[in-house]
Amino acid sequence: MSSDSILTIKNLQFSYGARIIADGMDIDIERGKITTIMGPSGTGKTTLLRMIGGQVRPHAGEVRYEGKNIPDLNKDALLAARKSMGLLFQASALFTGLSVFDNVAFPIREHTQLSEQMVSHLVLSKLEAVGLRGAAELMPGELSGGMARRVALARAIALDPRLMMYDEPFVGQDPITMSVITRLIKLLNDSLGMTSIIVSHDVHDAMAISDFVYLIAEGKVIASGTPEELRQSESPWARQFLRAEPDGPVSFQYPATDYQTDLFASVE
């Protein structure tokens, strides 16, 4: 445990029926750093972010954010905690009925009593930070996927959160947008003094900007360390994942009955 951690997850348990998402997971996020949580798709990384945000209750374990255990908070305290968090959804989740400007202004208008002039000032500065000030009057439907994600990012940082979470920020982006977003995450983290958590299965871009990496599979942390430490790791999981080998501890085959049994069962 680091002395200056913003978020500590201890012995986390969660499952959707038979599908295990977390089975005694321990994660520690250090303040001011970029931490990446990596794992094969379908391991419930998004659910993990939702548990940090308090939208999903873990079955057991602690999610301690700035000293408060999120699952224990009542509604008001949870809302207060969320005000200092930002979450960039994989689907961007822009409000389709509002313009780009109004989307970014939404959290500001909801949580502050600022004058319209101040709101406009703030919104334009956030849009400028993601390089889309010129798109303020567009509607979300008119944006490309990459632009929509940047607008969503501007909206997520509108109230200067202390903890910023990114859910698969690199998925489905062209290489240029990908590097733009990578740079933005790094830039925002350093210039605004935020702490960042990236959930991803993209090895290279995430590793490039991360200070610390957790590798998870089957509900457990199977390797952790700085990117450099992980590359040197002898763990078979880490090797398979980081070198993108098709077979290893993570099987190519979805669990099934014996192939031959299946084949002959249909003949009978």
């Binding site: 945000g53 939208q55 809302l79 969320r82 989740a93 409000f95 939404f106």
Partner: peptide, 18 residues
């Protein structure tokens, strides 16, 4: 329903708006 399906409601929750 569409706001729910496209996670707009969920993202609103994360912005501490009910």
């Amino acid at each position: 329903g569409l706001m729910k399906a496209t996670e707009q409601l969920s993202s609103m929750e994360m912005m501490a708006v009910d």
